[in-house]
Amino acid sequence: MDWVNAVVQGTLLGGLYAMFAAGLSLIFGVMRLVNIAHGDLIVLSAYVALSGAMLLGVSPFVVLILAVPVMAAFGYLLQRLVLNRTMGDDILPPLLVTFGLSVIIQNALLAAYSADPQKLQAGAIETAAFAIGPITVGVMPVIVFATAVAVIAGLQWVFYHTALGRAFRATSDRQDIAQLMGLNRAHVFGLAMALSMAVTAVAGVFLGMRTSFDPAIGGSRLIFGFEAVIIGGLGNLWGTLAGGVILGVAQTLGAKLHPGFQVLSGHVVFLFILAVRPRGLFPRIDG
């Protein structure tokens, strides 16, 4: 039963990883931008929520409603004012600039909040749990997982059923021809980053409620996000959710073998899948 329990806990953890991954996947899909600062932006979101919760004296769930538009606006401005200037045929400049951004965010958080671990206090719900047969499931992890499913479903809907999603897909296919349709690329990129940061805000707030965080943890969140994207297959949102779950389960099973194996076993499973299915388990089927 312990093993079944580990799989269930890992699946629920995978929802959080899927949210790390979704924002990363989205901007790579639309504008071929690899955002090295993504993990730090997740952590930044958690700190924004922390300050919001303290200033307003409300629960992190309420702060979420504020953090999402704040981070989305930040993402739009970041793209328009900084990242768009680096976009071109060469993928190296945006890579370097987001790397620099990552360093800046980490150090700014360190200066503002110190290196002490922080946590978003959600109250009694954090420890609430219910039993399904012999397995005990925490309410909080279930909420996180359900939110991840809703976020993925929402992104899927935006991509395939709205004018915005059409603009994203067209820009992803052929940037110059999309311009001919009257779509201003700089604005479309800004909107893509805004949406990515909205998802990041949700991921950051739930990260902060599930575990403690400090300014240095962004890097490993970036890696988990990358791994989930690659396992699931680039450009496939439901695949990204599956990738997150596989990574989460690999980690909890590894931890069950030996507590030190948690992160390692996730990497091993990732490398294995990359070796046998270089395009991921569920690559997008198109030309």
């Binding site: 059409r166 897909r169 052929r174 021809i177 999309a178 198109d286």
Partner: peptide
């Protein structure tokens, strides 16, 4: 109407 058509394959 561009040379080579250049439709959007994802659409």
């Amino acid at each position: 109407v561009p040379e080579g058509r250049l439709l959007f394959p994802s659409l």
